[in-house]
Computed example of a mutant assay.
Amino acid sequence: MIADGSSPLRLKRRRFTNVHPMEAQAAKAKLAAAKEKFGREIRVFETSPLSSSSNEESKTEEVDEFYEFTAEDYYRIMATKKEDKYLKTRKVREAEELARRSRITKAVIRIRFPDNHTLEATFHPSEKVQSLVDLLMKVISKPELPFYIYTTPPKKQIKDLSQDFYTAGFVPGAIIYFSYDIPKGNDDAAAKSGPFLQDEIMSLKGLELISEQAEPVQPAPAPEPVVSVPTPVVEERKPAEKKPIKPKWLKL
Rank of each mutant, 00 (worst) to 15 (best):
Q198M: 12
K192Q: 07
E235M: 03
S203H: 11
V217W: 06
S193P: 01
A214R: 07
E200A: 12
V227H: 06
V217S: 11
P219Q: 11
L209R: 09
V226D: 03
Q213K: 14
P232N: 12
L209A: 09
V227G: 01
E200I: 05
E212H: 11
E212F: 06
S193V: 14
V226R: 05
E236H: 04
P195M: 08
I201L: 07
Q213M: 12
V233A: 15
V234L: 15
Q218K: 12
E212S: 13
A220G: 03
L209P: 00
E212T: 08
P223S: 11
V217Y: 06
D199N: 10
D199H: 05
F196R: 02
E215A: 14
K205V: 00
K192F: 02
Q218Y: 02
L197M: 12
K205D: 01
V229F: 15
P232G: 14
A214K: 03
V227I: 14
D199A: 13
G206M: 00
A214I: 07
Q213T: 15
P219H: 08
F196V: 04
F196I: 04
P232Q: 13
L204I: 09
A220R: 06
P221D: 15
E200S: 13
E215N: 09
E215K: 15
A189N: 07
K205R: 02
F196H: 09
Q218F: 02
L204E: 08
G206W: 01
P216W: 02
L207G: 01
P195I: 10
P230H: 11
P225S: 08
E224G: 03
L207W: 02
E215F: 04
K192E: 03
S228L: 11
L204T: 10
K192L: 06
P223H: 00
V217R: 12
V217D: 08
P195Q: 10
E236T: 10
P223E: 14
S203K: 12
Q218C: 05
V229P: 09
Q218V: 11
T231C: 02
D199Q: 14
V226P: 01
K205S: 06
I210S: 08
L207N: 01
L209C: 04
E208A: 08
S193R: 13
Q213N: 10
V234T: 15
K205P: 00
A190F: 04
P230K: 11
A214H: 05
P225N: 07
L197K: 06
E208P: 01
D199S: 13
V227L: 08
P221V: 15
P216L: 04
I210P: 07
S193A: 13
I201H: 02
E236F: 03
I210K: 14
P223I: 07
Q218P: 00
P221C: 12
I201Y: 02
Q218S: 03
D199P: 02
M202Q: 13
F196P: 01
A222L: 08
E236L: 09
L197T: 09
P225R: 09
T231V: 15
P216V: 07
V226N: 00
E208H: 15
V229G: 11
E224Q: 10
A214E: 07
P230F: 07
G194P: 04
V217I: 15
A222S: 07
A222P: 01
V217A: 12
A191S: 14
G194R: 05
A191Y: 06
L209I: 09
Q198Y: 02
